[in-house]
Amino acid sequence: MTLFKLAGTHVGYHGVSVLKDITLSIDPGEKVALVGPSGAGKSTLLSTLYQQRGEGTALVPQEYALVKNLSVFHNVYMGRLNRHSALTNLLTLIHPLKKQIASVQPMLMEVGLEEKSNTPVGELSGGQQQRTAVARALYQGGDVVLADEPVSSIDPVQSRTVLNLLHSHFNTVVLAMHDIPLALDFAERLIGLRDGRVLFDRPSGGIVAEDLDDFFLST
């Protein structure tokens, strides 16, 4: 059984095609990294996958998609808006219950934001905001996570912690990454994109970062 399946898919915005003739499938349990120069179509491919299977899939968008004037707690709580009635959500927006704050706290501890629960997201640094977006995905849970450059603003040590978290919480992981060594360490399968096409799609075992230099440098 496959989770995602694209066969000769084209995607375009305003007449400009971003993805051309993409054929791939992703099975449950796979750890995939999408690599390629910026503008290759990684983000578009992730949203195409999300459109194919949104239910049970957590998303970490590149621009975090946080509500800056809400607290860290509220932003993480948003990962489970679909599990409560609108009335419960309204009451939580106005005054969260202790129980709910406690349920979010473990996720904040995982990403090192346990002190920031009440801080408005707008007052956080870029890296802290990105970790809030990751915590929201962890809190949402499910089988699959699609993450677009989830560690781009985080320092190297914490980057590894965050990627470990995503891998341990979700069965299937698809990441868009520009950091090749990091991608090689975590992913079992590497999909290389350029100009909206799949250039290669192979297991990451046996590849060393230098092998891919040509891929990024050559035009």
Binding site: T57, L70, N82, A86
Partner: peptide
């Protein structure tokens, strides 16, 4: 964009 699948319109608007 990042709201979980199946979030009601009202909850989405509120948050």
């Amino acid at each position: 964009k990042a709201l979980p699948f199946g979030t009601s319109h009202l909850s989405a608007f509120l948050f």
